[in-house]
Design a binder for these strands. Sequence first.
DNA 1: TACCAGGCTCCTT
DNA 2: AAGGAGCATGGT
Length: 277
Amino acid sequence: MNISKDTNKIIINNPTHFDIMQILKSGQVFRYSQLQDNSYQLISSDKKCLLRKYQDRIEIITEHFDYFYDYFDLSTDYTKIIDTLNSQYGISSVTEYGRGIRILKQDIFETIISFIISANNNIPRIKGIIDRLCNALGKDCDNYKAFPTAEQIALANYDIIDNIGAGYRARYIYDTANMIYQGYELDSIKTMDTSKARKYLTALSGVGPKVADCILLFAYHKMDVFPVDTWIAKVYLDECGVCDSNKKMSNYLTHKYKNLSGYAQQYLFYYKRKSHN
DNA sequence: TACCAGGCTCCTT
DNA sequence: AAGGAGCATGGT
């Protein structure tokens, strides 16, 4: 697979580790929609790109080349990661099934709010809630809405947040946006070690250990985390034959997969949810 | 009708 | 530190 730049376009030839459907349906991102059979629109923060697939080529059409080059983690060698996972852990059927997945580097605030919404929720409904949040408060861009800023949510009438169908998460969204708008630092997390970063994030309303790990993985690209949801709990049950607390499962899996935990988690999650893909 | 979904907060031990 | 009740909403 090799990557080149054209006018307003990233081109990926022989995309062995870039599958549009797999990336979009791997449960890490929610603001996408299908335009045609081979074409998807993806919005991140206030930026848009179009994803198209041809025979042996993928095109990412965007005015923000650098942003989406980084966003799709295009400088990372996934062949090497998968080879290591296969040889050390024997999960080649899992990595083969999701070989087109990549771990995205998403906007920090958007990821925080999105995964607050994800708690005890299902993916189709998460998408709907985020859509309504963006339509209600997001800046009007060319033909689409940006994800609302912390300021826009914090200064909004609470009734608007309460009317997007988020249930009890509406209060968390509002409170967390207010904390961040008041100055809760998010950039300093980049240089924290993971356990300190997790503790720091869980001070936000609606952010527990699992949501914090998703934020660390999908926004800060920290790979020594292993978010445990109900699907990963099933994976753990298959392997260990018992149910344990989420904390115990996450510790076990992080210790096992070490600095490849984030990648392993995503391949295993995608594989376990096969029937939903 | 119940149970489930990328769990969290808050209250008890 | 660890465990459990309650929680909004919509899909199956």
